[in-house]
Design a protein around this nucleic acid. Structure first.
Lengths: 340, 340
DNA sequence: CCTCAAAATGTAATCCATTACATTTTTCTG
DNA sequence: CAGAAAAATGTAATGGATTACATTTTGAGG
């Protein structure tokens, strides 16, 4: 292995000069730098990054913890993170936690052992005391979700506003019997969407009915969506619209409806959330809320590195990025306009 | 920061003893180890991993290069890689190359700079001389794809056999006008699937016709599949079955068919490849070839670490994992059985 | 209780780069 | 051209662990 020492010898300078040349220090004379660069070239020297990092006490690595990056929603955010990190010459360690606390803990310990400089958390659990500790001691940014009272910057959309907008849109189409499929998890997005749904109903003078609010499992699985949909569609009178907190759930509702011979959107309006790829693969194309996933990922990186470089700027700044209502084919006015 | 020295002092031993305790050396007396562990506990000491790695000349990190991990096929393999690495206490740096040569190169350079111990390549490009160099100097494993004459182990399914099986199945259903949508890339899988298709047609005494073989773009995009499908469906006589080299392409064919008022599988049989999640979200459920993605990922890690530990075992061993024909709804006998 | 091998522990070199501080070289001024 | 300031370079300490080798401790056997 070629070391900096050998380069120094070959170029007839000291290791300090080689190091300075490597780091583009202005203190090196152009001619000397040239000689050093040539030596590097000739010996095919590649600096040992870990050695450098040890000395500088940094790793140039950031962690990205996600429950499951097979989920296209997360994978798009991770792509954004990866792209931005690439531009800034950082590496991203992607950690599939599967929502397991011990996975999250083990990955976050890499911060303590100096294997990573900071972490971006996508939809991680926060019921553990140790997370608050990490947030204090390390550089952490939350993406998609955030814990309200955690001193830790976050990037997300305004889930409350987006939900109100969507449900208001459905009301505007003439729907009044609007059901919702939420999810059995503690995410702030889930809570805010539920609140948005309830509030806008209330504002329209509609009593929210318990039988029109169902839960899918924590991971928004297709199967659990199917079950919830079947229950909702068995109600009489049937809801004319179902607002789902994820696109997969919306697809499961469409599937359940078709199973019953119902036409979407003719007999039933269905809306999703996130706007992942497969919302426009088969008809009816899904009416949904589009999140700027890629940008959210990029922003998280910027926020994290800001903190790393300038020493933890604003501790718990909340960044909300704009969402977009994607009006497509799965939502239409109800067949028999109801009177309110 | 707490260092090993402080632990040593606190426990009344030397740094060597602390280090040995950390690494579970049998040379340490049980009582001493106990004292050391207590000191570690009390001082909340966490070893500096980069320092250790520098000394040991390893990083405990492996690279996983993928063209695009938003693609569910890759993301499932990456999940397998991540899971196995997690078990073996390795970290995985996931690199989204987008198929760009300079991205691949920059990531692979992390091997030279000792930031990673080895790399797993998923469907990367191989037209560059430097890749052969890396394969020689570093520990690399190919997953999904492989370059025939590269001395580098690989894990994949037998694409040739799988394709023959699928096309034979279609022939068995009574199809003789079987079209294919391939992809405009140099992957060995693409080549082998094409060859399998051509060979089995030939063996059935059927002249392969150029107008029944179309190409989607290199990334199997939905849009390019749509275009190819439209061309194929405009042929007269129309093919009765279309074999696609990816599930997304198959979905695009179904979409194109429905646009023309054709029923799948009534009027047209469509098959995919890979068996990603969304093959069973809407009807008709896709008949396709299932790849053991998760296991392929896990195997790649094992193969890589074998090489790392035992110093490059079998240089270019090819591992083929079993695939499975998933007979579902999108394939059926042709409506008007043709005579051969 | 002595001797000696085995077991346990310690000392110091090592991994490879960065950087504070010291030293030399260059440049500029009068 | 001397002398001082500025620029360029060098020396050696440093980061935090591992480990070869040296040393001390322990315990068995006589």
């Amino acid at each position: 292995m070629v070391t900096i020492e050998q380069v120094a010898q070959h170029a007839g300078v000291s290791v300090a000069t080689v190091s300075r040349t490597l780091n583009n220090s202005p203190a090196v004379k152009a001619a000397t730098a040239q000689r050093v660069r040539q030596a590097i070239e000739e010996l095919r020297y590649v600096p040992n990054q870990p050695a450098r990092n040890l000395r500088r006490n940094e790793s140039q690595v950031i962690l990205a913890l996600a429950p499951n990056f097979s989920n296209p929603y997360y994978s798009r955010i991770l792509t954004g993170i990866g792209d931005r990190a690439w531009e800034l010459e950082y590496s991203v360690l992607v950690c599939n936690t599967l929502g397991h606390a011990n996975s999250e803990l083990r990955f976050l310990k890499m911060l303590e052992s100096h294997q990573a400089d900071g972490a971006i958390l996508l939809g991680c659990h926060w019921d553990y005391g140790w997370l608050a500790r990490f947030a204090q001691q390390s550089h952490i940014v939350q993406c998609c979700e955030y814990v309200p009272d955690l001193a830790c910057p976050s990037v997300s959309i305004d889930n409350y506003a987006a939900t109100r907008e969507m449900v208001a849109y459905l009301q505007g189409l003439g729907h009044s019997r609007i059901a919702m499929i939420g999810a059995d998890n503690q995410y702030i997005s889930t809570r805010l969407r539920r609140q948005g749904y309830l509030d806008i109903l209330a504002e329209a003078g509609l009593e929210p009915r318990a039988e029109l609010y169902r839960l899918a499992d924590a991971e928004y699985s297709f199967a659990s969506g199917l079950a919830a949909a079947q229950e909702l569609l068995a109600e009489t009178p049937r809801p004319t619209a179902i607002f789902c907190v994820s696109d997969i759930l919306a697809l499961s509702v469409i599937s359940a409806a078709q199973e019953l011979g119902l036409d979407v959107p003719g007999d039933l309006t269905v809306t999703g959330f996130d706007d992942v790829d497969y919302t426009t693969i088969v008809h009816p194309y899904l009416t949904t809320v589009s999140q700027p996933c890629h940008e959210m990922g990029r922003r998280s990186v910027d926020l994290l590195l800001d903190g790393l470089q300038n020493g933890k700027a604003v501790p718990s700044e909340r960044t909300f990025l704009p969402h977009r209502l994607m009006k497509r084919e799965s939502a239409a006015p109800p067949k028999f306009a109801e009177t309110i």
